[in-house]
Design a protein around this nucleic acid. Structure first.
Lengths: 208, 208
DNA sequence: CCATGCAGTTAACAACTGTTCTCTGGAATT
DNA sequence: AATTCCAGAGAACAGTTGTTAACTGCATGG
């Protein structure tokens, strides 16, 4: 397996990745719908026309960025939420994981938060679709927990959506606090922990 | 008071409003950071340069749109949340109110959801600031409720933020379901009611 | 009634955009 | 060794953009 990829194809993948990286960097200060094709190629150092060798349009590149961004988010949502966020220590660990992820993938997180409701339909749909998939996966994880006994499928999915949304809200709060003092980040963490705690309590008494 | 506003100034306000309306309409299919000054003036039917008589820049117009959008949201957040969302009937009424608001002010809601994390800093900050203000106001309302006895200020604010975020999430889900069948909207309503119910339960047992 | 103020116009600017077609150099295939 | 393939370059296209300056006409205040 894996032919080690000829020189030719390897170089193509490298410039493709350069395009994605440059676009992601440029998107820190603007939205995808205002990102120009020439702008991206200029940042990479290739001719504008070479762009078409890799993507049909900027929207197309955006969809590719969604895959990349959620590829890095996927492992997190598992390790964060699957140990049925409940005990105080687990909640703290989950919030710390979110903080770390935002710190290490800030550009990706910013991109997702920005384009989730952004002005480019295909990208919006790609993000919504992936997040819905995450929620379904998380639902399956939650169903395994002993606490889920007696819960309907619909209620489990409801809870999963609540967790996913809460995770994104927390992530975007961390994002805003990134350039500020450490105290701001700690405050975000405190808030997030309390909100998760409240959800956890609601979950525990759901069937009363 | 109120000099009935001379013909002169009245006309100025009218074209200013026309600019805001045109911009809001154009923003249904793109983000603010890609909205062009000429694009807006063309839609209104005035010369591009006349734009500067009303706004310094597109970002400036965006901030004005935030005021407008949240002005219409302000009464809702009161009537929705102040009767301490708790009983089943109150939750249903709150969700219906959100649905109605989205239906009647879809463009404004879309604008807020899109630019809350959008690519134009001053607009982002204006939205965040206003939402934080809403949360503080809601906190005061929540404090009046008998259920809030024994709650710390920080916990009340935490709950208020949870409600505000939940409201926006629900609103944007309604937005996506606007063009679809009525069943999709009813499903969003079901989900929103359940999530509010879970938060409500968590709230009731917070001090256990 | 006349002078001022000011919303909106016109013209022009340099710079930018996406997309087309043609070409080239070198890796891949035969 | 000869041939095909294709990532990227280059030039040109018709439009677009924000911003400037100097203007016009008309409601306003003295």
């Amino acid at each position: 397996m894996s032919h080690t990829l000829g020189v030719r194809q390897a170089q193509k993948l490298r410039t493709r990745q350069a395009l994605l990286d440059a676009a992601l960097a440029l998107l820190e200060e603007q939205s995808l719908s205002s990102l120009g094709l020439r702008e991206v190629t200029r940042a990479v150092g290739i001719a504008p026309t070479a762009f078409y060798r890799h993507f049909r349009s900027i929207a197309d590149l955006g969809v590719a960025l969604v895959e990349e961004a959620l590829g890095s988010l996927h492992p997190m949502i598992r390790t964060t939420m699957s140990p049925a966020a409940d005990s105080e220590e687990r909640i703290a660990r989950a919030v710390d994981l979110i903080a770390r992820h935002v710190y290490e993938h800030s550009a990706h997180v910013r991109f997702l938060a920005r384009e989730r409701h952004g002005g480019v339909q295909p990208v919006r749909e790609a993000i919504q679709g992936q997040l819905a998939r995450f929620a379904r996966e998380l639902k399956e994880e939650l169903a395994k927990d002993e606490q889920a006994a007696g819960w309907s499928e619909e209620d489990l999915l409801m809870l999963a959506h609540l967790y996913v949304d809460q995770m994104l809200i927390t992530a975007s709060l961390f994002l805003e606090a990134l350039d500020g003092p450490a105290s701001a980040r700690e405050q975000v963490a405190r808030l997030a922990r309390r909100q998760l705690r409240l959800i956890s309590i609601g979950r525990r008494h759901w069937l009363d």
